[in-house]
Simulated scan of single mutants.
Amino acid sequence: MKYSTKTAIAACLFTVACAPLQLYYKEGETVARMDRDETRCEVTALRQVPTDIRTRYIPPQYQHYKVCHGTGYCSWHRRLISPGRHESYDANLPLRARVTEQCMADKGYVRTKIKRCDAATTEATTLRATQVLPPVSEKSCAIRLKSGRWQIVTPDT
């Protein structure tokens, strides 16, 4: 089955739109301060663990299948599933992410995921970007605003 480019893009956007908000959280901290702290930690981590760009070759993948004719003669064929390709990656990325997370933890932040708000909660909320990280609970959810910022909401019981 083939998918169009538009379908693939829509699927990616839908997946991103439904994904939980991931952020460093410290109750009562301003979002601006959290952003500055995260940037400083990322810069520090980059200095401590510089990029190490490597290239690897991913060989092609084939699927073998059998074709039989009415005469009883069968033969094996192979179909290209994925062509061979070169791929570049930063070998230090996982370590740099851990250093950033440790730096943020030293500043009192915890890496947190907050689920997306459902449509009813979004409709009932006056939309405005979160400026100060509020107390959160299991009921808390996040709304992604058109500006790219987000709003954390904790619906009433």
Rank of each mutant, 00 (worst) to 15 (best):
L13W: 10
I58C: 06
C68I: 11
C74G: 06
A8W: 08
P50L: 03
Q61F: 02
R36K: 15
A17N: 14
I9C: 10
E38Y: 14
M34R: 07
Q63P: 00
Y25I: 00
H64F: 11
T39L: 15
I53C: 07
D37H: 13
Y73F: 13
Y57E: 11
R54L: 14
C18R: 04
Q48E: 07
Y24V: 01
E42M: 08
T51M: 10
E38G: 07
Y65W: 09
D35H: 14
K66I: 08
R47L: 03
Q48T: 06
C68S: 11
I58H: 09
A32S: 13
E38C: 09
E42R: 05
Q48L: 10
G70L: 07
A45Y: 00
V16T: 10
C68W: 09
V16S: 06
C74Q: 11
P59K: 13
Y65S: 06
L21R: 01
R40V: 05
T71P: 00
R56D: 10
T30F: 08
Y24E: 01
C68Y: 06
Q48D: 04
G72R: 05
P59C: 07
R47I: 01
C18W: 03
K66N: 07
P59E: 12
E38R: 13
H64N: 13
H69A: 11
R40E: 09
Y24A: 01
Q63H: 06
E29D: 15
K66M: 12
K66H: 10
R36F: 06
P50Y: 03
Y57D: 03
R47W: 01
C68D: 07
R56F: 05
A19Y: 04
V16Y: 06
A19L: 07
E27N: 11
Y73L: 11
Q63R: 10
E38A: 12
D37W: 02
G72N: 09
Q48A: 12
P60R: 12
C12Q: 12
R40G: 02
Q61C: 07
R54K: 15
R40S: 02
L21E: 00
F14H: 04
G70K: 05
R40I: 03
C68K: 08
I58Q: 11
T44G: 01
I9G: 09
C18M: 12
I58K: 13
Q48N: 09
Y24G: 00
E29V: 11
A8V: 15
P60L: 05
V16D: 03
T44N: 01
E27M: 14
A45D: 00
C74V: 09
T15I: 12
F14Q: 03
T51E: 14
G28C: 12
L23G: 00
V16M: 08
D37F: 02
T51A: 12
A45L: 01
T71R: 04
C41H: 00
A17G: 10
K66L: 11
T30C: 08
P20L: 03
C12D: 15
R33F: 09
A11R: 12
P50Q: 06
A10G: 15
Q22I: 09
C41W: 00
D52V: 04
T15N: 04
E29C: 09
Q48V: 01
V67S: 14
Y25T: 00
D37E: 13
H69Q: 10
Y24R: 01
T51G: 06
A8I: 14
A8K: 14
G72E: 05
D35W: 12
G28L: 09
H64L: 13
C68L: 13
C74K: 10
T71M: 03
L46N: 04
R47C: 01
D37Y: 04
A32C: 04
T71A: 08
Y62A: 05
